[in-house]
Simulated scan of single mutants.
Amino acid sequence: MIITSKYLVPKGYAAMAIFPFIFVHDQNMRDNKTLINHERIHLRQQVELLILPFYLWYVTEYLINRLRYKDAKKAYRNISFEREAYGNEADLDYLANRRLWSFLKYLHSEQ
């Protein structure tokens, strides 16, 4: 389910996935197939990690990256979940072919 809310999406972001919803900053973004695919990849990641562990892993990885890179944007872009989503957002068939735990292959490489 896609919900439009300029208040729930953090400033500087177009959308955010919080199972089972995708929040978009404005109505026009609902039709952006690449953006929605990116967020659907996150929903799949959340389900396969049973929701709560996904968020704990995400925040932990961000904090480790923040210490490592000393840069918020670089820390965010190098979270394995984000690397998988950004790397495959344009492939609208990605989720149909994606293997379980695919984000793991993005853990040790850097963007």
Rank of each mutant, 00 (worst) to 15 (best):
H38R: 09
A15P: 04
R30H: 00
I79H: 05
R98V: 15
R98P: 09
R40W: 11
A14N: 15
D26P: 11
I22L: 08
A85E: 05
Y58M: 05
I36A: 04
Y86C: 06
P10L: 05
Q27S: 11
L49E: 10
N88C: 08
F81V: 06
V24F: 03
R77V: 11
H25N: 11
F81D: 08
A15R: 02
L104S: 03
K74Q: 12
I18D: 14
F23T: 04
Y69P: 01
Q45H: 07
Y86N: 11
F54C: 05
N78T: 09
L92N: 00
R40E: 15
A96D: 15
I2D: 11
K6L: 09
L52H: 03
I51R: 08
E39P: 13
W101Y: 15
L100D: 10
Y94R: 02
G87E: 02
M1F: 13
H38Q: 07
L52Y: 09
L63M: 06
V59P: 07
T60G: 12
K6M: 10
K74R: 13
L8P: 12
H38C: 08
K6P: 15
E48Q: 14
Q46R: 01
I41H: 03
E39K: 10
D71H: 02
Q45G: 06
Y94I: 02
L49R: 08
F23G: 06
Q27W: 03
Y106R: 01
R68T: 00
N65R: 03
N32R: 09
L35H: 06
L56H: 00
